[in-house]
Design a binder for these strands. Structure first.
Lengths: 346, 346
DNA sequence: AATCCCGTTGGAAACGTTTCCAACGGCCCG
DNA sequence: CGGGCCGTTGGAAACGTTTCCAACGGGATT
């Protein structure tokens, strides 16, 4: 590690040509065949590799994109990140992972840090969004794509999904299979996903045809399995004396749903026979769980891909108009709400 | 977005002092109180934020560290990444995620790309390691920390764990609880983790005191739930006619273990009563699964933290001697091998 | 045969920062 | 009262790259 890395100047000297020609030759434009040959050889001998920093400084382009979420460990974000990486890497972009923190303020801080110009853009899925954050994103020095909440008419590119409608689908599915005492297990309502799920649930149960359904609501401290377990214990303990127990639980998230299943079993009840459970996000975790989880897919991979594609466009031309992409929500029915025969499998 | 970002030169002009003084004032060293005040004010007014690229070029330091694994979606790597990020971020380092690909060659390619100097170092957990890769890492232009295989005497810093010994613990645990027909479900043996697990299993069953145990082996195509399911089906179908079915399965990985549990249940058998199952990695997935998974913890978070700390040292002084850190393996007994009463819980 | 044009080459500037070095002034000490 | 020292400041170079611009030469066109 004694020898320092070769620079373009050294390649130029070795090839006996000018710095300008060397650069052109390596890019294969505006250079004669002989020149290219010569420079290539010199570069090869020296083991030359262009310095990313020098290039970035000159080109005003880092070939890096930030991906920021509150919790990198959440399966949904992992799935998004993987998709983003898969789209961006072939175009020569690197992905920098960052943490937004829990609050809107810490996210604002992160957006501000874009001012130091270490990335060409940022894909962010904020847990909590307020006007301050929106304003900050609007005046960010590099393109920002928001995943999670439609940003129409604000000049911000976004990728959203119909999680509210998805919750509705889950509720209607439970109603269809005959459940009439439905509990709703949401995460913190002051978060962006918590708020939209709340809206979706309320809209669904107020839709009229579900009037005869009994409803219970409970809020978990966050979107984790542990919080789901505790919240489910609470909601299941709330059954009025003499009244029958709930026969369905709609969880705002697969993690909460799995916690809920635990709680159900603690009471000696079974899923789906006694209590059907639905999740949301359609994570691999839910797919391999037993019973496999009926879940509303919000297309995490697809959202990641869409965000990455938007970012590629914006990286190309940062001044192009903001776009909104919407990804559909789709209920995937599995064992946690129906037995195999009910699902029509053989 | 019309106004371009303010540069240090503009701050200097605004403050009416030299460029050099401006830089010093903002760093608070070698500058008078009045100067600092003045420059700070000017910087504030212009909304100045130091350009990361310019600084990197001058300082020959990117404040970025790469984290490279074959599959970012694997829970183990996610856990490592989270830990790495948590250690590095407070020190001002950003984390760039990269993919090694499946093969040693593609990993070599990745190590070579470090030559363009976009990171100060790299933490890598190669799926497959050969001499070519090792040589490439040895002559990498920036510090590299390898997670997964001890690199003593090769001048490479590494963080390893005793996965072989961990497999042994799992086998002995099963023997202790009376299992005498043990199947081993490994992943591809030509991978680094696959090889060490194989070694561990062979060593354990050859240790003598387990002589009376019947052994079966099977290899899954990769370390996923799906591959585990298929491999488990094969090994369970191999039981000689008239002979009793296996009563335990040691899986090389939590994902394989969960696939295995599925396969066991397909046969109408139950875990742990008929067949006990152990996993490895102690992932959250295994913890929340039902039955919760007995698993050998390899301290993914701890390995990530250790690697990050090594990297911090190396970033400080790239020429310091390579270090090897070892993280212990520990069996965590849960429901997939013993009932609650057996575990001594109330 | 003179001119124009195009392809190729080299010189030089620019990107934004940090830091070495020299200069300057004031203060303390002898 | 003079010399030396230290704290502060400014000028300038350097990091490695891309690209603008001018210069040069050869071939084709008029």
């Amino acid at each position: 590690m004694t020898s320092t890395r070769a620079t373009l100047i050294q390649v130029a000297e070795r090839a006996g040509v000018s710095l300008a020609s060397t650069s052109r030759a390596l890019h294969g434009v505006g250079a004669s065949k002989a020149m290219v040959e010569r420079v290539r050889a010199a570069a090869e001998e020296l083991g030359y590799s262009a310095d990313a920093i020098g290039r970035s400084l000159r080109m005003k382009k880092t070939f890096q994109v930030a991906f920021a979420v509150a919790d990198i460990g959440n399966p949904v974000y992992v799935e998004m990140m993987r998709a983003i990486h898969e789209v961006l890497a072939p175009h020569g972009y690197r992905v920098v992972v960052m943490s937004t923190g829990d609050t809107s303020d810490s996210t604002i801080e992160l957006v501000r840090s874009l001012g130091s110009g270490f990335v060409d853009g940022m894909i962010v899925s904020p847990l909590r969004t307020d006007d301050g954050l929106i304003a900050e994103i609007q005046q960010a020095p590099v393109p920002v794509v928001v995943i999670g909440r439609a940003m129409d008419d604000r000049g911000i590119s976004s990728v959203s999904t119909d999680s509210a409608g998805g919750i509705g689908e889950a509720v209607r599915h439970l109603h269809t299979i005959g459940r009439r005492r439905i509990g709703f297990l949401n995460g913190p309502v002051d978060t962006t996903p918590g708020a939209s799920r709340q809206r979706g649930f309320d809209a669904a149960v107020n839709a009229g045809d579900l009037a005869a359904v009994r409803i219970e609501r409970e809020t978990a401290e966050d979107f984790t399995v542990g919080a789901g377990l505790e919240a489910a214990r609470r909601i299941l303990a709330r059954v009025p004396e003499g009244a029958p127990q709930l026969d369905a639980l709609v969880a705002a998230n697969d993690l909460l749903a799995i916690g809920a299943i635990r709680a159900v079993r603690e009471l000696g009840l079974s899923v789906p026979e006694d209590i059907a459970v639905t999740g949301m996000d359609d994570t691999e975790l839910g797919r391999v769980f037993q019973p496999s989880l009926t879940s509303v897919s919000l297309g995490a991979s697809e959202r990641g891909r869409a965000a990455a594609r938007l970012m590629l466009q914006l990286a190309d031309d940062p001044d192009q108009p903001a776009q909104q992409v919407s990804v559909g929500a789709e209920l995937v029915v599995r064992e946690s709400t129906t037995t195999a025969t009910e699902r029509g499998e053989r």
